[in-house]
Write a protein that binds this DNA or RNA. Sequence first.
DNA 1: ATATGATGGTTACAATTCGTAACTGAGAGA
DNA 2: TCTCTCAGTTACGAATTGTAACCATCATAT
Lengths: 116, 116
Amino acid sequence: MVQPELCPRFEQAVGMLSRRWNALIIFSLLGESQRFCTMTESIGISNRLLSERLKELEKDGIVERNVFPETPVRIEYSLTEKGRALAPVMQEIEKWSQEWLPVQEAAEDEQEPSVR
Amino acid sequence: MVQPELCPRFEQAVGMLSRRWNALIIFSLLGESQRFCTMTESIGISNRLLSERLKELEKDGIVERNVFPETPVRIEYSLTEKGRALAPVMQEIEKWSQEWLPVQEAAEDEQEPSVR
DNA sequence: ATATGATGGTTACAATTCGTAACTGAGAGA
DNA sequence: TCTCTCAGTTACGAATTGTAACCATCATAT
């Protein structure tokens, strides 16, 4: 019933990072603050889920929501210090992917995906 | 429709690591080879999903399945070189979690979860 | 004053994935 | 034959996700 092997903090971190889209959201904010609509486009996530995930990440203290009352209103999302501290994780994922994943040419037409 | 910002290999890596349970499976195999039933206990994953995930990870070349025809049959799962190369990712997650996540005392009784 | 457009979301609902629990199959021993 | 262990599968309800349509606010155009 209890899994005694794993550090609960590690498990919590993995749970957060494993939540669908979270790693991509954090990665895309490592570069610079972004607006809602920019993120949906660059990440390829729907409005619904981006909204949901940003709220969760804000509650976790990883993302910050900054409102600029211009016209039309501009809202920028950025990483907190806690969020930026995830940069090394992303860097290691990037390193691994470059070393171990094949470069796949962009298929213009739909072809049988090799995995799922 | 197309998200041009992100490196496709990075996205693929994140997709694999973000799949529920995958990070914990890989982490628990970083130490040593493990049997199926040991993993379900230590990770807290169900038979169904562990089986599914191990097959996927094997197909991805990250996990190896070794059959020892003893009695009863012993099957051990271990990481390939590609899988072990994920160790730095796990280490960085661990570092981050130790620095940024609070130690939470184990609550014996069910109490209001702070998130969700 | 009303219509239109942009931004930043919500809501509704179908499709996919997950969790739980019961079941299967192979081989050995009682 | 019956039971036991290990290593999974199967069935099915519950939770999460994806898609698409809709809403609220503010500003400018008509």
